[in-house]
Design a protein around this nucleic acid. Structure first.
Lengths: 296, 296
DNA sequence: ATAAATCATGAAAAAATGTCATGGAGTCGT
DNA sequence: ACGACTCCATGACATTTTTTCATGATTTAT
């Protein structure tokens, strides 16, 4: 077995030019190195150096091991740096899980300043979970769950970080465009465009259409927000999105937001974390940043 | 210090899901693993796993080490394969040294099939040596010396691999072109073109002109065989080359080979190797291929 | 030729790694 | 809810590995 120690040794002998000098640098006796080298050579079945007089000249195998050492040892050294930083709580990977598309739009605005404040922390955003976002959080697949739907579980805690209203988006010259709010019956005559996710996870359905026992005339799914809104602007359908998101597009596109029902659908985005992670500083930092609004 | 052993262990625990199972796979006692883990964690200052009930859940550090393990361990495993092949003489770099230009032409025909038979072996051809080809061989600068001049030394052995006749090449419409062989006096009236090497290494001189105390009318040097023969074909001079080499060009160029003297100059190419390398598989393979003629 | 430096080696000491025995704690099935 | 089972932790002890010390053989430099 080629051990790290062997590689260290081989590299040092190459640098110092002799066993004795290398032993010195490594704070070992010359004898120790000699023994170790002999064991390694016996084990591998091939010498690492050819002994020419009292000089050591690398063999095939020696040259190969040397290149291996030059490649792997720095990686190990770096790994130790990283571990040390992790040990001091200054570094890690913040794995954020998301279940809703609007969350993603919001998250984008938060991640940027976060990366600036925590230069030692990487952010990883994941969106597909075998056992759902909750399962991913409990299973340590992610560290934070961004969700509009805080399912309480022992060991977990949620923090609301963002309020928004879910609205209907229609083209500016749509027959409903001048209205302030719409009824389920209004929507039932439209083509509804949504992200491609299960119906129960769409608020228009679960909180608006289903209670009134209505369905849209047609239902299309589109992956991306931009295309979705282009379709809406072209009068090819209506969509349900957060009001703030619609407003961002409104100056570039001929679209208008309408409340769903007279009171509108009020939503919140929550961050869920494991209670045990409460002391992880870069996670706390993320929660704090989110609550403060991210961009301020 | 993160050792290979630690990475192996971490990877196995991840694969098996428990210390006990990993210990089993690694042929160690559960206790041994537990001890090692504790030592590692103490040393790093951070746990690798968080103990949740009796389950082990990787921490930041643990996940990082795991990814490190998945990256480095395969490289080490591969390195061991390579070393084993080197040890068995099935892999390495065959450093071939050459002293004569015709040798090079011949070598090209041998190297190609050799590379096909020994996929693990790289071939490196060297032509300039500070202390001559012999010195390079003795000084382990090269592994094989291709030479027409086998200088015996203790520790070295030579094998003849190729016989050829050194001939004079003249243009088809040269005044000598109809002759079977030429005398030193004939050549003394010509412009002789040779490779740019010391005179004593040119057989036309050492074995033909010098013994007869003749010199050519003029002496030009040219690096490449192609240009040399174009010059000859154009009637701008004569050259001395192996007969087989001239024959290869003869169908494309207006040139003719003539023996040097009534009996011709008979030459052999030898391969010189260090006796100690006799067991190296890929070297033996090279010698065998050369003796068999290479292309058959 | 002599001195200094280098690597190899055997024996012994020191350190590390491993095993055994055991205990506590979570998990599962009834 | 209880017992059987499984899993991890730990201390004492054993084994293995690594290191040192003392020394020798050989090469290089003066």
């Amino acid at each position: 077995m080629i051990e790290r120690h062997h590689l260290t040794l081989i590299r040092e002998v190459d640098r110092q030019g002799s066993l004795t000098a290398a032993a010195d640098t490594l704070c070992l006796s010359q004898s120790a190195l000699s023994h170790t080298v002999r064991r390694l050579e016996e084990q591998m079945g091939t010498p690492v150096w050819r002994r020419e007089g009292r000089r050591l000249i690398p063999t095939q195998a020696g040259r190969y091991l040397l290149s291996l050492a030059e490649r792997l040892l720095p990686q190990l050294a770096h790994a130790e740096d990283v571990i040390e930083q992790i040990a001091r709580g200054q570094r890690g990977t913040l794995r954020i899980g998301m279940e809703c598309h609007p969350c993603y739009q919001w998250l984008l605005k938060v991640v940027d300043p976060y990366l600036a404040i925590w230069p030692g922390v990487d952010v990883d955003v994941r969106q597909r979970f075998q056992f759902g976002g909750l399962g991913a959080l409990l299973g340590h697949e992610i560290d934070v769950l961004v969700t509009p739907d805080p399912v309480r579980r022992p060991g977990l805690c949620y923090e609301p970080v963002f309020d928004y209203e879910q609205v209907l988006v229609v083209s500016n010259d749509h027959r409903l465009a001048q209205r302030d709010w719409v009824t389920p019956r209004d929507v039932a005559e439209e083509t509804l465009i949504t992200y491609p996710v299960a119906m129960e996870r769409l608020d228009v359905y679960s909180q608006f259409l289903m209670p009134a026992q209505r369905l849209p005339r047609r239902h299309k799914t589109i992956e991306t927000t931009d295309i979705m809104l282009q379709m809406v602007a072209a009068g090819r359908g209506v969509a349900a999105l957060p009001r703030w998101l619609v407003n961002e597009y409104a100056d570039r596109m001929a679209i208008a937001p309408l409340s769903l029902g007279s009171t509108g659908i009020q939503k919140q985005i929550y961050l869920g974390v494991r209670e045990r992670d409460a002391e992880v500083d870069y996670l706390k930092g993320f929660l704090a940043l989110c609550k403060s609004g991210g961009t301020q």
